[in-house]
Design a protein around this nucleic acid. Sequence first.
DNA 1: TCGGACACGTGATTC
DNA 2: TGAATCACGTGTCCG
Lengths: 239, 239
Amino acid sequence: MLWMENVGDEYKNYLQTPYFLENQEYSWTIDGYYDSSSPEGAPSSSASKNIVSERNRRKQLNQRLFALRAVVPNITKMDKASIIKDAIDYIQQLQEELAKTQTEIMEMESNNPETEEQPPPPLPLPLPLPLLLGSHNANVFNSTTSSPIQLLQLKVMPMGDNTLLVSLTCTKRAGAMVRLCQLFESFNLKIITANITALPGTLLNTLFIEADEKEKDGLKMQIETAIAALMDPQSPMTS
Amino acid sequence: MLWMENVGDEYKNYLQTPYFLENQEYSWTIDGYYDSSSPEGAPSSSASKNIVSERNRRKQLNQRLFALRAVVPNITKMDKASIIKDAIDYIQQLQEELAKTQTEIMEMESNNPETEEQPPPPLPLPLPLPLLLGSHNANVFNSTTSSPIQLLQLKVMPMGDNTLLVSLTCTKRAGAMVRLCQLFESFNLKIITANITALPGTLLNTLFIEADEKEKDGLKMQIETAIAALMDPQSPMTS
DNA sequence: TCGGACACGTGATTC
DNA sequence: TGAATCACGTGTCCG
């Protein structure tokens, strides 16, 4: 806890009241640092304005940090830096798990296309996948993320020597590279070599995957469907 | 950017030299505050020890904050408080989506119990939902996420024609590519061309960035610190 | 006693 | 100017 106690002391005055009123007693003079100036009248000595401003800034920053700590489970140390670090790790865990579960859903859907004729009522409606991966939804500002990626070209070719060549071209959108990387990483493929090149307008992607003869067809299908799901439904390729 | 420039100024003294030596000139006497004590001999004036300590603490905290910003997409304002706030919102979005997808998986599985024909693959076993929000603790399976990325080589070189060349080599870890992409996308750089190549053990990254002469130094510093923050602290490069 | 973690007041900078 | 943000040095508390 250490510093939180002090923070608590600080918040005791703030959190309960929307705004702290009259903190003039709070800005007590340290050994008469500032008692001299400003005989009175205009109490804002313009220097102590900065003081209170800075105080509020620190307060807000600590509040936010506190809120962050509340959202992240398993905070080990209450250290400021540790809180941020734990948050980072946690975010990465969430991202990874999300990618995993989503690809899992995709696999299940592709394996059981008949799942659509189930009882309509409960059915939360198998979300359109592109929306899922790209989401962080309710994005007013985030139209970039949800802006569709257009698939320009996709080839998945067996190559002999137990390798599969994937060649992909698509339009470049904000977050496109991230989504592509997440997609392929979530596959848990044996990637021999992967290469992504971003040109001004487009994204080129080439990867060599290790797969024995039996796996190839399955993998090919899997990749194609996953990519198709990630891309714009109106894309020239997916139509 | 605002405050990052100052950070750059701060790092100018750190990143290039393992430790800044002889900061006695740096701890210049403010109107002769501390000039009196410690004639010499023991250079650690015990007061300036605190100064350097505090400096490092601030540095680390900013690094962490920067790393946090790298993990969260769609950072709007570079404000410290805003970074934390965006991170909080993002975490809540992730938690929500994860809960959705996992319940979806559970429903699908309960409807199609035969989908278990794939026990051998990773299949992380859909967690019981209540465990979801609270947990993510001590991930047995997820040691990959926390496995550190080691920075093997980093060069940021001005190139004339208003371009900056970034050449990066690091060890390949799960999520490494995703994190790298997020990092660079979050910069909002004018990327002329980017290229990521994944080899069995390592990750090669080359990008050309458009930046006029004035920006170059700032960008260079910014990138170096961001990368350093993303990488393993014990990495041979960051030491 | 030494070091780590913190809040504080201050000056600088930027818009 | 004026408000906002930051880094800095400092004193203090605690293990």
